[in-house]
Amino acid sequence: MFEAKLTESTTIKRVLDAIKDLIQQANFDCSADGLSLQAMDTPHVCLTTMTLRSQAFEVYRCDRPLSMGINLSSISKILKCAASKDSVKIVADDEGADCAEFIFENESADRIAHFELKLMDIDSEHLSIPEDSDYQAIISMPSAEYRRIFSDLSIIGDTITIEINKNTACFSVEGDIGNGSLNLAQTDSADEKNPVTINVKEPVKMTFPGKYLNTFTKAVPISEFVTLCLTDGNPLAIEFSLPDEAGFVRYFLAPKIDQ
C-alpha cells in the first residue's frame, strides 16, 4: 500500500510545473524515504531530478518500494482540479497497480474530489550522478535574480557563458542581434536581504544553452534561493530546495564545448 497526503496541493503543483516542460513521462519512485524521480529531456541535454521527502507529507506510508510510471501532462491536468489550499492524497496499490488515486479535499472538508490516473510502463535509463562533487565554483542567489538574468539573456541568444572569478560572476550572451553581459558581485553584508554568495576554489568559465537556463526559471516559485555549481568540462548543477528540507528539484545541464 502506498499512501501520501500533502496538506496543500501547492507543493506538488509547483514541483510539477518545474519539470513538466522538460520531461514528458517518468517513473515516480516511492520508498520509505519519500517520492523521487529522475529523467532526461528528449535531446538528452538535461537531467532533471526531484525528491519529495517523507517529512514533506502530512501522512506518508510506503509498505514496499514501488514505481509509478506517470505522464507529466496527465498528472498536471488532474492536479489543475485541486485548489491551491486543497489537500492532496495519492493512493496506489503496491502490487502492480494500473492506476493511482488522487483525492483533493478543501480546508473545511466538505468538498472531496476523486480522480484516477492511469499508470504506464516506462522503460527508463537511470543515470549515476556523482555524489559530493568537488565543484570549482558555487554561486547562490535569490531565485528572482536567477529568473531575471536568464530570461533577459536568453532573449538575445542561446549561447550563454558563465564566468566566475573571485567574488564576481559574469553572465554573457552572444546572439544574432548582438550581445550582452551582466556582472553580479557577492553582497558585502551577511544582513543583506537578498544575498549573493560566491565560493570559488578555481575560476571557471563555461558555456550553456540559454533555452534550458530559461526553462529552469519554472522552478523559481519552489524556492527563495537557487544554487549553481560549476566545474570546468562538467555539467552545471542547479538546485532549488523546498522549505524545511522537504525536498528539491535539481537540474544537470550538459555544457557547450569548443570543439
Binding site: 538528452h44 541535454v45 537531467l47 537511470h126 555539467p235 545541464l253 550538459a254 570543439q259
Partner: peptide, 14 residues
C-alpha cells in the same frame, strides 16, 4: 565552433 554535449556523456547508467 561550440558544440552542445549530451548529459549521458557525463553520467553513466547504473
Amino acid at each position: 565552433g561550440v558544440q552542445q554535449t549530451r548529459i549521458d556523456e557525463f553520467f553513466k547508467p547504473h
